[in-house]
Design a protein around this nucleic acid. Structure first.
Lengths: 329, 329
DNA sequence: GTATTTAGTTTAAACGTTTAAACAATCTTG
DNA sequence: CAAGATTGTTTAAACGTTTAAACTAAATAC
């Protein structure tokens, strides 16, 4: 790699001090610098194709304008979409984003967070796996700016941006009830993650006893979903509510294979969506999560926290129902 | 944010110089340092929860152990998978990756590359849009370590990792010919990107005149794909070869809507795949690109280039056919 | 018992910035 | 015209590391 151009090189060429060059290039001390010198400096900077060394800048200012984004599973379209949005929003404020995926593992989360902090990120946006409470309290203790995104811990007060899962699940079930189905199968993960349990709680509250619940283990999604659907069908369930996009994919794959016709034999609704729905033989009704809102709000809160304007704020965003053919009567 | 612990803090607490602390913590000067002092330093470092400031380290060593990854379109599953793989491979070698998406725009590519370089990345992995030759020659000129990934410019010698698109496309068409179809519709982008044109060239060479070609404009994928398919069907085409995963999605969506039965009425094959295929009513035959190989090889080449061991090397990887139901006879 | 080697540690400069403070020259002002 | 203000610029320290070179004291050699 060729030697890069530094302030010193410009200063030498123009015949002034590096300080002056720095002032000119940063537009500080506006009134004080002679027009001609300023112009010369700018010209030489351009001529030499100067671009500041952010590393040196960061060392001095203690700001890297980098954010760490920890996702639960980058393979999930929800995560990758969030990543794009966060990146865009962050860029608008001048931040670069570095991304890590914990693959739902607490230890990997911890490692990645330490890596982010080593690199002196200005703050963190975190979607943490099950049982990560200690990570959160630890970060609070260390006074590191961060925001929880999507996954939250209500008992720990901290910046949080999430969907109102309880309300959204109620809306979904209400739609099923309104349409015809009285007996409803709910498929969810077997987890203690609050956001998922809130979905279940909302759905169950709405069903008022006319539900069946199938819980799916993380390493066994396809088989457990299939088992749940099988038992639902045996029990004359009229509609299935998949509480995540991955669960929906597994379920739809199976329903396809079994030639169950949707919505005639069975209504289907999903929490969250994926592009894959597009290729299913009929359109799928789903709860649309406000991804842009989540990402934008998280970045906004984090930036406030970094710049010291932030308090511990919790923001819940509304999700909305998108009615399609899979729940048509 | 709390004040972080520096070498100086450890040095002060132990009562030695920062240099000694640095030596101990980096395991340098092994033989020369007294066991007791070394032990004390390590103990205090642990006690204070010291973690080195990578920014300062980078400034001194001129290495950031960060790579810049520029993708053409992060929304494309091909890109996001590549991102994951590159990230993993890079991590193995101690690198962090920062990612940008050019959305197929040359100007955005340039901006992102400059951003990466500002942040002193050690090297770049690039999937560039159409008409980016100047970017490549410019980087060569500046002696910046980089590797082209997937998208390549044969006339510019530089580190390149890509699929042998020509050979892969021939394999795909051969499979269609072997199976029954003699008249084949080819759907590709209207572009001058070499990797896509190589696919087309391979397919056309294999078809020997029994092909129809539909070219699709970037901003009008769905409509152009539909128009192409319509004209194919009018002309009794027996099989369609979609030359990218996005083209396949658009096409399958349309074929679904038109109730064309696959493979009975029409055989279908795709270059590259996506999870969305899973929800189509039948399994789709496709060319499987060696994503892991691409990512791993790119990181390897780049690392060699960074550490000075690299020459301009071009690696072409083979893609393989995955036979499924959409081309069954 | 002086000279040399070895072991253990410190000094100090450097990386490329930023920025408060100092400085010199010129310009007001009463 | 002396004192003070203004304008334009430089000096120098700092951020947290790394590392060659210097230093000191003890050990070894002859």
């Amino acid at each position: 790699m060729k030697k890069t151009v530094s302030l010193k090189d410009i200063a030498a060429k123009v015949g002034v001090s590096t300080a002056l060059v720095s002032y000119v290039l940063n537009g500080k001390m506006e009134g004080r610098i002679s027009k001609e010198v300023a112009a010369r400096i700018k010209a030489v900077a351009k001529e030499l194709n100067y671009s500041p060394n952010q590393i040196a800048k960061s060392l001095k200012t203690n700001r890297t304008y980098t954010l760490g984004l920890l996702l639960a599973d980058i393979a999930n379209p929800f995560s990758s979409q969030i990543a794009r949005i966060v990146e865009n929003e962050a860029n608008k404020l001048g931040y670069t984003v570095i991304i890590g995926s914990s693959d739902e593992r607490v230890e990997k989360s911890r490692t990645l967070i330490e890596l982010f902090l080593n690199r002196q990120v200005d703050g963190l946006i975190l979607s943490l796996p099950d049982h990560s409470e200690e990570i959160v309290t630890d970060l609070k203790e260390r006074e590191i700016p961060f925001v929880l995104l999507d996954r939250y811990f209500p008992e720990i007060p901290c910046n949080t941006v999430a969907v109102d899962n309880y309300a959204a699940a109620k809306i979904a079930v209400k739609h099923l009830l309104d349409h015809k189905s009285s007996k409803i199968g709910l498929i969810n993960y077997d987890t203690s993650l609050v956001h998922l349990n809130e979905r279940l709680r909302g759905a169950v509250d709405m069903c008022q006893g006319n539900e069946m619940v199938g819980l799916v283990r993380l390493g066994h999604i396809q088989e457990d979903v299939e088992a749940a659907i099988k038992s639902f069908l045996e029990n004359k369930v009229e509609a299935i509510f998949f509480m995540s996009n991955l669960l929906a994919i597994s379920g739809l794959k199976y329903l396809n294979k079994q030639r169950i016709s949707i919505p005639e034999q069975l209504a289907v609704i999903a929490f969250d969506k994926t592009d894959a729905f597009d290729l299913f033989y009929t359109t799928i009704t789903y709860i649309n999560q406000p991804l842009s809102g989540l990402g934008a709000e998280a970045v906004k809160l984090l930036n406030e926290s970094i710049t010291g304007k932030g308090t511990n704020k919790t923001v819940y965003l509304k999700a909305e129902l998108v009615k399609q053919n899979s729940t048509a009567t």
